[in-house]
């Protein structure tokens, strides 16, 4: 037997503990390592791209600029020029990070390289390093696991997204007007009910954000493992392209929903015409209309 279907669990595996804070130590999971690697990869992209930025971009600079120019234009079109530029760092960071975090699942070695600990799920000790191969492969504790398959990460980003959305709402509309979204006593019972629904909606956003990303990526992860088990070597190949697409779509959806919710949060529900209309930014930002050669390409 090449390998057995690995033990697939929702909880991530703790690889080791750093003696810090917690009496038992600070747990380092197999997803946290990839999270750090992802962050380093993003830093490396920026460093290589903008170490010596050129007027006519090439290579990595071209790729990074093209990606972020599209995101910046999108932010300005949706939220207006001023708010779009304010939201852009959050939207861009979420998109870039989630995209790379999603795409880790098709990288060779991720979830196929790890350790089989004796006694865990009845496994025998086979040594410090073990590949997804052989009869004990279903007991593999992967060293690396895509961060997006960790609910802790998706929940963290979801909470950040919702909290930042609320902060922008408070800053733009003021505390009173923003709170009246949820305590809408001006319009009677119906207003109060709508306010309660708005509040529930904010909480539901955290759940929908986190579980949408987690569910899609975890399902894709399981799909790849099952296909690799059913049709070894070649079975998962076709699904790699699907997972690339799903990873992109999920990152885009996460970033766009964050942008839309931020835009809604800074739009007054009492006098929406007083605030920056979403399309006004597009009209007011002709400077970004001429896309550089990179974007035109």
């Amino acid at each position: 037997m090449l390998w057995q279907l690995p033990h697939i669990g929702v909880p991530v595996d703790t690889l080791f503990y750093i003696p810090f804070g917690n009496p038992n130590g600070f747990p380092v999971s197999n997803t946290l390592i990839i999270t750090w690697v992802t962050i380093l990869v993003i830093f490396a992209f920026f460093f290589v791209a903008f170490r010596k930025p050129k007027l006519v971009p090439r290579g990595i600079q071209n790729l990074v600029e093209w990606t972020f120019q599209l995101l910046l234009n999108l932010c300005e079109e949706v939220a207006g020029k001023e708010d779009g530029r304010r939201f852009f760092p959050w939207v861009a960071t979420i998109f870039m990070f989630v995209l790379l975090a999603n795409w880790w699942e098709i990288v060779p070695g991720v979830e196929s390289l790890g350790t089989v600990e004796p006694g865990v799920h009845g496994a025998q000790h086979l040594g410090p390093i073990y590949f997804l191969f052989g009869t004990n492969s279903n007991h593999l504790t992967a060293w690396l696991r895509p961060p997006s398959t960790d609910l802790n990460l998706t929940l963290a980003i979801a909470i950040i997204s919702v909290v930042i959305t609320q902060i922008y709402g408070f800053r733009k509309l003021g505390a009173f007007q923003h709170i009246t979204k949820y305590l809408n006593y001006h319009e009677g019972v119906m207003g109060i009910l709508v306010g309660i629904l708005e509040f529930v909606l904010e909480l539901a956003r955290i759940i929908s954000f986190s579980f949408r990303l987690f569910g899609n990526l975890f399902a894709g992860d399981v799909l790849l493992l099952v296909m690799a088990f059913l049709v070894p070597f070649a079975g998962a190949t076709a699904f790699y392209f699907l997972e690339l697409f799903v990873g992109f779509i999920q990152a885009f959806v996460f970033a766009m929903l964050t942008l839309v919710f931020m835009t809604l949060a800074v739009t007054s529900h009492e006098h929406p015409e007083e605030h920056d209309a979403p399309t006004s930014g597009h009209a007011a930002a002709p400077a970004h209309e001429p896309i550089p050669a990179s974007t035109a390409a």
Binding site: V10, I39, A92, N152, I157
Partner: peptide
């Protein structure tokens, strides 16, 4: 917890993302 939510892991992911954002910002 069945879903694998752990306070320390959650905080570590949260802090990691915030570090990424702050450095990029």
């Amino acid at each position: 917890m069945g879903l694998g939510i752990n306070v320390w892991m959650f905080v570590s992911q949260l802090v990691s993302f915030l570090i990424l954002f702050l450095v990029l910002q």
